[in-house]
C-alpha cells in the first residue's frame, strides 16, 4: 500500500468538494456548502497493479479577499487544480495556485480540471484553450472524474 497526500485547489465554488464527492462516494448534490478549513477523505485505488491509498485534502477555496493558506500544502505529493468553466477568471487564477503550491512542494505534480463542462454550450467549447494535463470534467454528470484522479496518481507513482 502506498499512501499519498493530495489536495484540491482552486477558487471558491468551482466544485472541488463535488469532484471529491463524486470520486469517493459516487454522489452529487446541487446544494452548495462551502468548505471551511479542510476536510480529509480517503480513497483506495489500484494503478498499474499497485495499491494506493489517497488522503484527499479538500481545502476551502480562495476568494478575492482570502488566499488559500499554504500551511495545508506541506507534504502533498500532488494537487488537482480546479477551475469553473463558467467563470473564466477561475481559469486564469490556476497559475497562481500552481505557483504557490509548487513553492511549497517543488517535487510535486499537478493536473487541472476545467469543471462544470455540463453547463457549457457545445459551440463555446471550441474557443476554450485546453492546456496539457487538463481535463474537462463534470462532477454532476460524472465526466472524466476518475480519469482525473487516476492520471494524477499515475504521475505521482514512483
Amino acid at each position: 500500500m502506498i499512501r499519498k497526500k493530495i489536495l484540491l485547489l482552486g477558487d471558491f465554488h468551482v466544485g472541488k468538494t463535488s469532484l471529491i464527492r463524486r470520486y469517493v462516494d459516487n454522489a452529487f448534490s446541487d446544494d452548495y456548502l462551502t468548505t471551511i478549513g479542510v476536510k480529509i477523505s480517503k480513497k483506495a485505488l489500484k494503478v498499474d497493479g499497485l495499491d494506493f491509498e489517497l488522503l484527499i485534502w479538500d481545502i476551502e477555496g480562495a476568494t478575492p479577499v482570502k488566499k488559500i493558506p499554504t500551511h495545508y500544502f506541506a507534504g502533498a505529493a500532488g494537487a488537482i487544480l480546479v477551475a469553473d468553466l463558467t467563470r473564466p477568471e477561475t481559469i486564469k487564477g490556476l497559475d497562481e495556485h500552481a505557483l504557490r503550491f509548487h513553492a511549497v512542494n517543488p517535487k510535486s505534480v499537478c493536473v487541472r480540471a476545467y469543471n462544470k463542462v455540463d453547463l457549457i454550450p457545445e459551440e463555446s467549447l471550441g474557443s476554450i484553450d485546453i492546456p496539457p494535463d487538463t481535463f474537462l470534467t463534470s462532477a454532476k454528470d460524472d465526466i472524466n472524474v476518475s480519469l482525473l484522479f487516476e492520471t494524477l496518481v499515475r504521475r505521482i507513482a514512483p
Binding site: V38, K42, L55, H71, Y72
Partner: peptide, 16 residues
C-alpha cells in the same frame, strides 16, 4: 491514518 492526517490539518488550521 485519518487521525494522523487530521492532526496535521488541525495544526495548520490553528496556525491560520
Amino acid at each position: 491514518q485519518m487521525v494522523a492526517s487530521m492532526a496535521s490539518a488541525i495544526k495548520d488550521f490553528i496556525n491560520d
